Amino acid sequence: MPNFPAATQRARVRVPLRFHDGYSVDAELVTFHGLADGQEHVAVVLGDPEDEVPLVRLHSECLTGDVFGSARCDCGPQLREAVERIADRGGVLLYLRQEGRGIGLYNKLDAYALQDQGLDTYEANAALGLPEDARDYTAAAQMLTALGITSLNLLSNNPDKAEQLRTLGIDVHDRVPTGVFTTPHNVRYLRAKVLQTQHTLALGELADVTGLAELNAG
């Protein structure tokens, strides 16, 4: 049984999505009443589920990556990939207002400045007196339950997302990795996620651009 207060659906609206590369798909956006953190998270319902276990992604908002196309992270490409993969199989993308792993936009940009001085993404948060990852997925579990989803396949490289959902009573059948979206500007960030928080990214693929990243930094 879920061990959190129930949330309810507030409204549903059809929205055609269009991406910069020409990909388009129709989605249904769902808003909610009663979310534990009081944030305006949105569920993006895509496609028709092929079976009883939908594909779900918990995507944390990233203004710099999702909107401005920043190459310092992989958030924008992950969002684009997730929408198409979920639409093909049927499922939901939860767009969660958790900028900077929950520390907020201004703090994230402060952390970027420290990363420019040589700290990795987690060390920079610590230097600011902030947690490495401040995200709590109780609201995500509430949203899923309000949508009638208590069993899913999770599209994510992050084991903490699956562990938190399971603790909250959501049955995560499988954790499906995303693609690896490397640039010379984000390779150190991705390597830190692998080495410090056990994200399922292939270090060999990251090594392919490490040399170029070091050359650019020199």
Rank of each mutant, 00 (worst) to 15 (best):
S70K: 12
T64K: 10
L206K: 06
G102Q: 05
E84I: 08
P5G: 01
T197V: 05
E50H: 06
V45A: 08
N3P: 00
G104C: 03
A111L: 08
R101L: 03
E61Y: 04
S24P: 09
A217M: 01
F4P: 07
R97D: 01
H33L: 14
E205H: 01
D51P: 00
C62Q: 00
E61T: 11
V180I: 14
D74P: 10
D208K: 14
E99N: 04
F181G: 06
E205C: 00
T64R: 06
G204L: 02
D160F: 14
V13H: 12
L79P: 03
H185A: 15
L94D: 01
P177A: 14
L94Q: 05
G38K: 00
Y137T: 02
E28Q: 08
G102C: 05
E28R: 07
R85P: 00
A7Q: 03
G169S: 12
A87E: 14
F4C: 05
L144T: 03
R89S: 13
L144K: 03
F32I: 05
A126D: 14
D116V: 11
L35H: 02
C73P: 08
L114Y: 03
L29Q: 12
L212I: 08
N216T: 10
P54Q: 06
V15S: 07
L94A: 01
L168K: 05
I149T: 00
R85K: 04
F68W: 13
L105I: 11
Q164L: 08
C73G: 04
G22A: 04
L215E: 04
E84V: 09
A82W: 07
R175M: 14
V83L: 13
N125K: 08
D208W: 10
D136F: 04
V187R: 05
R97A: 06
T121W: 04
I170C: 09
T167C: 11
G118V: 10
V53E: 03
E163Q: 15
L29R: 10
H185S: 14
E123K: 09
R89T: 11
L147Y: 08
I103C: 11
R188C: 07
V209F: 00
G22L: 02
G169A: 10
D120E: 07
A162L: 13
F4V: 08
I103Q: 04
K108F: 01
G211L: 03
I103N: 08
A162N: 12
